[in-house]
Computed example of a mutant assay.
Amino acid sequence: MSLQDKALQLLSDSIRIGTHDWGLCNEYPPSSKLVAAVKFGLDDLVPDIWEEFRDDNEAVSEALQYASVQGNAKVVSFLLENHSEIGNALHLAAKKGHLEVVKIFHGAKTVLNMHSCDQMTPLMLASKAGYLDVVKLLVHHEANVNEVGPRKRTALHFSAEFGHSEVMKYLIQEGSRINAAADSVRTPLHLATQSAQLEAIQVLIGAKANPCAADKKSRTLLHFAASTGFMEAVEILITSGAEIDTLTADGRTAVQLAVYSGDLGTVRQLLQHHPVLEAPVGVSGETALHAAAALGSLDIVEELLKYKVNPNICRKDRRTPLHLAVQNGHIKVI
């Protein structure tokens, strides 16, 4: 056994029994000397021990994965020249943003739209992480911008959710469907709103995304923004045409959702756009004033009364806001 071979064997064995520092990490030990050489950056030894592992597909695939994660273009190039099984190596390189490694795979068009075990494509992974240069390269080599992944989401959904506005602009430019519906019929604009990604919302609205889109529970973008106190989004959506009085499937308005969240600022903002306040909605026929009184939100009750809301309006069970305040012991509201 050569000195190099012994060194690799000792390194691999020490990791297996936990005496090497890397053995203290929550990682699987290298399964072979080839993998150990790649994992620990002993690049020059890879060609020397290649013949021993040429036909060991499992070892070569694992080594290729490590090299891709590390962004080791030299080793990736060598392994691909001598091995045809790519596996998920491109996915790993795209996820980490290793542009030079991704370039090596440019001829492997069969894997550009291949899904990993979690149903992600390389383009989705790069878009989610915000690696614009990698996204551009993948699209240039014909990665499908509208490929559907986990929960029926596209690359645009992922970039919108994580607020990568430059990636979004490029994907839209290259033909991404702006109003593509993912699980629960949520569009990229839904995900941007839920994740409080203001710039992403501005990009999508600027590209004519539908501000009135609703999910399976009839929750619109405005409902999500109002319920989380995302005031900037509330203003953009209403200005762009979102309907303020639309009801969710369980009969809630944007104003009611803002009341439930206890966000006075958002309630005030919505009231400035003159929503309907006295029409009983939902199963109980509750108004925003009923909700505020039941919760004991004195400042919101006072704000609603400024808009001349009838304090004696009844729910379907004939209870007024005062009934609910008394029932819940909210003395200040009473």
Results as ranks from 00 to 15, higher is better:
13 D>P: 07
107 G>N: 14
81 E>N: 13
11 L>W: 12
79 L>G: 01
153 R>N: 03
277 L>V: 03
55 D>M: 10
263 D>T: 07
89 A>S: 15
200 A>C: 10
116 S>M: 05
249 A>N: 07
276 V>D: 15
190 H>A: 07
244 I>R: 03
54 R>V: 03
4 Q>D: 12
326 V>K: 01
51 E>W: 12
6 K>Y: 08
199 E>C: 08
203 V>K: 15
210 N>W: 05
23 G>T: 04
310 N>S: 14
116 S>N: 13
271 L>E: 13
116 S>V: 08
233 A>Y: 00
292 A>I: 02
283 V>R: 12
191 L>G: 04
139 V>I: 14
261 S>G: 09
135 V>D: 04
311 P>D: 12
56 D>M: 05
326 V>R: 01
96 K>T: 05
162 F>V: 06
194 Q>C: 11
217 K>L: 12
303 E>S: 11
181 A>N: 04
241 G>E: 09
50 W>P: 08
123 L>Q: 03
164 H>Y: 10
253 T>H: 08
12 S>T: 13
180 A>G: 08
96 K>L: 05
130 G>S: 06
154 T>G: 11
311 P>V: 01
167 V>K: 00
55 D>L: 15
97 G>W: 01
211 P>A: 03
219 R>L: 13
313 I>C: 04
49 I>R: 00
330 H>D: 01
63 A>E: 02
271 L>V: 04
9 Q>S: 14
301 V>R: 03
66 Y>A: 01
7 A>Q: 13
146 N>T: 03
17 I>N: 11
34 L>S: 01
317 D>N: 14
300 I>Y: 06
151 R>I: 07
172 I>A: 04
286 E>Q: 12
26 N>D: 14
133 D>C: 08
115 H>G: 05
65 Q>H: 06
158 F>V: 05
120 M>S: 10
23 G>Q: 00
146 N>Y: 09
37 A>Y: 02
276 V>Q: 14
156 L>E: 12
20 H>R: 12
1 M>E: 10
163 G>S: 13
100 E>Q: 09
237 L>V: 03
75 V>D: 07
126 A>V: 00
141 H>D: 09
100 E>D: 14
208 K>D: 03
63 A>H: 02
301 V>Q: 10
263 D>G: 04
296 G>R: 01
139 V>M: 07
54 R>N: 11
270 L>R: 00
152 K>A: 05
235 E>A: 07
20 H>I: 08
155 A>I: 05
48 D>R: 14
121 T>S: 14
